[in-house]
């Protein structure tokens, strides 16, 4: 009997401790990483260093690109100084654990928004449209997409999920290849192992510029995908803050800065997210 009484009391104490701990956690959740960032005085951003023109190392050994400049613009909006920022170079597979375990405040890595991904990281709204084009050898006879739907044609894809689905839909008769890097995918076409590769339009333009024996096919694969900044899920104020900054970049007071960055890397002005401002 005595031992039951002791166990009961121990249980009660344990339950109370658990309750107190639970209350403690729920309070801690209200503290946002945003406070930490502001106290720290700089952003920690995960980027790619091997995806021109979004994030890559230039001839001077400096990390440059569209994503790098966008992240600097966010630092400027946050601290008034585009250099209050630290870049963490990460591979495609590394970006998820880096976001989930808090190594980075957010990632800017031309990351397409998919429902599957959004179950594990929080995405801001779209900050640049992704669109896929086909790259082929300059001397290749292909004119329309139908020319590529042949059993003797091989299409080189990236491990990105939509590429395989799109290739199967558009070219059911062609053979498919899958690579885990853009350089391998590109070289496969250049060397004649594959006849066409799906690349992001800006990436394709970049590669063709430095490889005159290649060309981008005029017929576009019409899908548009959205590209978001991504971060650890479950921190509402943090997510809301970056989503708001993105909204201001693509259609608000930061649009002029954003527009200049866009033009610097892609040679044309972006459309304003406020559609009624694009009347030309």
């Amino acid at each position: 009997m005595r031992s039951f009484g002791r166990r009961f009391i121990t249980g009660l104490v344990a339950a109370f401790c658990g309750f107190a701990l639970g209350a403690g956690t729920s309070q801690a959740q209200e503290k946002s990483r945003l406070d930490e960032i502001l106290a720290r005085g700089k952003l920690v951003v995960g980027v790619s260093s091997e995806s021109p023109p979004f994030g890559f190392v230039d001839e001077k050994g400096e990390l440059v690109g569209f994503d790098i400049d966008v992240a600097r613009l966010i630092a400027k909006a946050t601290f008034g100084d585009p250099n209050k920022i630290e870049f963490i170079r990460q591979s495609a597979a590394q970006r998820w654990p880096n976001a989930q375990n808090g190594t980075i405040d957010f990632g800017a890595q031309t990351t397409t928004i998919y429902a599957d991904r959004a179950q594990r990281v929080a995405f801001t709204r779209n900050y640049i449209d992704g669109g896929i084009v086909l790259i082929v050898r300059k001397d290749a006879p292909f004119k329309t997409l139908d020319d590529l739907n042949k059993p003797n044609v091989t299409i080189a894809n990236l491990t990105t999920p939509t590429q395989e689905e799109r290739a199967k839909r558009l070219f059911p008769q062609a053979k498919l290849q899958t690579f885990d890097g853009i350089a391998s995918q590109f070289n496969s076409v250049k060397l004649g192992r594959a006849q066409a590769a799906q690349l992001d339009a800006p990436v394709a333009a970049w590669y063709v510029k430095s490889n005159p024996d290649m060309r981008v096919m005029e017929t576009r694969l019409t899908d548009v995908v959205n590209t978001g900044l991504f971060m650890k899920p479950g921190d509402f104020r943090l997510w809301q803050y970056f989503d708001l900054v993105v909204s201001e970049m693509t259609g608000g007071y930061l649009f002029a800065d954003y527009s200049a960055i866009y033009e610097k890397w892609f040679g044309e002005k972006p459309k304003n997210a406020k559609w009624y401002l694009n009347n030309n």
């Binding site: 495609a92 597979a93 590394q94 998820w96 654990p97 998919y114 599957d116 991904r117 179950q119 594990r120 990281v121 080189a156 990236l158 491990t159 990105t160 999920p161 395989e164 290849q177 899958t178 690579f179 885990d180 391998s184 496969s188």
Partner: peptide, 19 residues
């Protein structure tokens, strides 16, 4: 580009974000 166990894993990581 051989879709073996490792590359299949990488394809799934790309889709799910679960490295």
């Amino acid at each position: 580009g051989v879709l073996d166990l490792t590359l299949s894993g990488k394809v799934i990581i790309e889709r799910s974000g679960a490295s």
